[in-house]
């Protein structure tokens, strides 16, 4: 709505020249008679980080699962522009093709690292597996890259052969991030990436994520109920209530000058530390 309004300003360039990476159009998901999310539309450009905020039950995770191709919407479309420049409607493609995208061009970071890692194999294998899925074959190179990425997410190189079961929650989450980013995805979906962590560990992870997102020019969609996390990581926000987007815009504008009654309530409910 705001985007459409922005296009018509006389003589004012709003910068819409390059094509978006991801386009959601009227995405709706019902669970029987219960609504998951309703009529969500937006465009995401390369290098842009979109935060989805709202309380639990507002439809954030349902929307994220639809966007990342893991849950078929009841209505609406999600289109993605591939590295090859092709625009694909992800739900009109075969499952295998969707999975290939998820393994190569996308990353999916789950709230609980145990859902996103293979707990029975070593840290190095967790990272290496993703490289092999993307076509890596040279064992020595895969192992070296895995070691590099462990260090990049601040895990000691000598933990390469340890299983994630021996890691703390914060280390497991960092390992999951390394596993997802090692193949240089163009788009990453994250569901409460800091949700299950202690505050001190959260700060470290946030700092790491900020750095990686900026350094690799990643586009990301991040679901969080934590407005401080949203402020630090997201360029823009969508605020969800009862399955619908009630407000969207530049992150600091939404948080410092919220317009919708629900956003004002959310922002005013945060405890000041």
């Amino acid at each position: 709505m705001t985007e459409a309004a922005a296009c018509g300003i006389d003589g004012v360039d709003t910068g819409l020249a390059d094509p978006p990476l991801l386009v959601a159009d009227g995405v709706t998901r019902w669970y029987g008679h219960r609504l998951g999310c309703r009529d969500v539309s937006f465009r995401l450009w390369p290098g842009e980080v979109l935060g989805i905020v709202g309380e639990s039950g507002s439809g954030k995770t349902t929307l994220l699962d639809c966007l990342s191709g893991r849950l078929t919407p009841s209505d609406g479309t999600v289109t993605y522009r591939t590295a090859g420049g092709e625009t694909v409607d992800i739900f009109s493609r075969p499952e295998a093709e969707r999975r290939l995208l998820q393994r190569t061009e996308w990353g999916i970071v789950r709230q609980n690292p145990r859902d996103g890692l293979r707990m029975g194999v070593s840290a190095g294998a967790n990272i290496g597996e993703r490289l092999m899925a993307a076509g890596g074959r040279h064992y020595g190179r895969i192992r070296a890259l895995a070691g590099e990425w462990l260090e990049r997410v601040e895990i000691d190189h000598d933990r390469l052969d340890d299983r994630p079961t021996t890691f703390s929650g914060g280390m497991q989450q960092r390992l999951q991030i390394a596993r997802n980013l090692v193949t240089h995805p163009r788009l990453v979906f994250m569901d409460e990436p800091t949700g299950s962590l202690d505050v001190s560990v959260q700060a470290r992870l946030l700092d790491l994520l900020r750095g990686l997102v900026a350094r690799f020019g990643l586009a990301a969609v991040i679901v969080t109920h934590d407005l401080a996390v949203a402020r630090l990581l997201a360029h823009r926000l969508m605020v969800m209530q009862q399955g619908a987007v009630v407000e969207s815009g530049l992150t600091d504008q939404v948080l410092d000058d919220p317009q919708h009654p629900y956003t004002q309530l959310l922002v005013s409910s945060v405890l000041q530390a």
Binding site: T2, A5, V12, T14, G15, E48, H235, R236, L250, Q253
Partner: peptide, 22 residues
């Protein structure tokens, strides 16, 4: 709120978030 940006005029009151950030 017109601001001259890289030789063009941008309306900060109407621009997309990514344009504001740029």
């Amino acid at each position: 709120i017109i601001v001259r940006h890289q030789g063009r005029a941008v309306d900060m009151a109407a621009a997309l978030p990514r344009t504001v950030l740029e």
